[in-house]
């Protein structure tokens, strides 16, 4: 397919996400991942921000490692609309010809990567958990990007390469790479990109945003998650789960069985038809650990299982397994945690 001049493409771009006046912290993880690659290839590291009122964020991303910041700032880009963001991004790519684009594997990042890749006639890979540039000694040409991602529900790790098209596009799973350190002495170049979305023939209109009524932590970006499953036995069980989550400053997750029973909304569901998470700590309360659930959380750093059944899969694979009635154990654990805090 490729009749592109691949060597014309240089520079590593990290695409940040600004939503409701906030810069998503995933950009700092992506700057770590992209920064390694930029250093290995000896290329410039840039951040691209699309939205409205982006000025305040330039300093932060430069301090976190960006040599250059592209701002596509327009009042009509305040909200994420697939077509509009894809047009803004691909126009800039066509003009500047970067080697690779990294986006967060979030709702916005994953939507945008898929559409932009086809518009650019280039390849994309989703949800990387590891990334490196080949040194030239392991069968790949020096500088080839080796992108590793879980597939088949985490049963297989696949390493992907794109030697045929540019820019390479990748989304990066949140919470995998550490955040890049800040250096307040760093300087960088700011490039303001002028756009006129009125001329873009957009067929999608943003109407409204409804915020989540609770102020709960989202499981996608949480570094600790406490999850409840069928073993809770009743909807009220999530009050117990929440008490532990609160004591740990953790987000609340759930198994499909708990969601399908109507005990908790779908957005909490971890697993194959829910969401994939990789927190530092995952506490599974009454979650037996079916394959479908493990696919969504099996890569958590530390797994704690609380269950009456010592033989269930979750208890077998957990870093720590606690054979107990969760309605007895959790209140005791919360008490102990409060002791620790005071």
């Amino acid at each position: 397919m490729s009749n592109q001049d691949l060597s014309a493409y240089s520079g590593i771009w990290c695409v940040g996400e600004v939503r409701h006046g906030k810069l998503a912290p995933t950009i700092f993880e992506i700057l770590t991942a992209g920064g390694q690659i930029a250093a290995a290839l000896g290329q410039k590291l840039s951040v691209v921000l699309i939205g409205s009122g982006l000025g305040p964020w330039t300093k932060e991303v430069i301090e976190a490692g960006a040599d250059q910041v592209y701002l596509i700032d327009h009042s009509s880009l305040e909200q994420f609309v697939d077509e509009a963001y894809a047009k803004a991004l691909t126009d800039l790519v066509n003009q500047e010809k970067p080697r690779a684009l990294f986006l967060p594997a979030s709702t916005i990042g994953r939507s945008l990567a898929g559409r932009a890749a086809v518009m650019l006639k280039t390849g994309a890979a989703a949800d990387l958990t590891d990334l490196s540039a080949a040194s030239g000694s392991n069968g790949f040409e020096k500088g080839t990007l080796l992108a590793t991602r879980p597939s088949y529900g985490g049963n297989i790790l696949a390493t992907l390469v794109n030697t045929r098209s540019r820019p390479e596009i990748y989304t990066i799973r949140p919470m995998v790479f550490p955040r890049s350190p800040k250096d307040s002495t760093r300087t960088g170049v700011v490039r303001n990109i002028t756009v006129d979305p009125a001329t873009w023939n957009l067929r999608t209109k943003f109407i409204a945003f409804q915020a989540e009524s609770s102020n709960e932590i989202d499981i996608g970006s949480a570094d600790k998650i406490v999850s409840g499953g069928r073993g809770l036995g009743k909807a009220e069980g999530f009050e117990t789960v929440r008490s532990l989550a609160k004591a740990l400053s953790a987000a609340v997750g759930a198994s499909r069985a708990a969601v399908d029973s109507g005990w908790i909304p779908y957005k909490h569901q971890v697993g194959i038809t829910g969401r994939t998470v990789r927190p530092k700590l995952y506490v599974a309360c009454g979650v037996s650990g079916q394959v479908q659930h493990l696919a969504g959380m099996g890569q958590s750093e530390v797994i704690v299982a609380i269950n009456k059944d010592p033989e269930c899969p979750m208890m077998k694979l957990a870093s720590f397994s606690i054979e107990a009635d969760l309605y007895e154990f959790i209140p005791a654990a919360v008490k102990e945690l409060q002791k620790h805090q005071s």
Partner: peptide, 24 residues
């Protein structure tokens, strides 16, 4: 899908068709 887990085919297909799309 539950094999590739990419979520890219839908948005990509929209781009080939040149239709607007929304995911999730």
């Amino acid at each position: 899908t539950n094999d590739g887990d990419t979520g890219q085919v839908g948005p990509g297909l929209a781009a080939w068709l040149d239709w607007p799309n929304t995911a999730y």
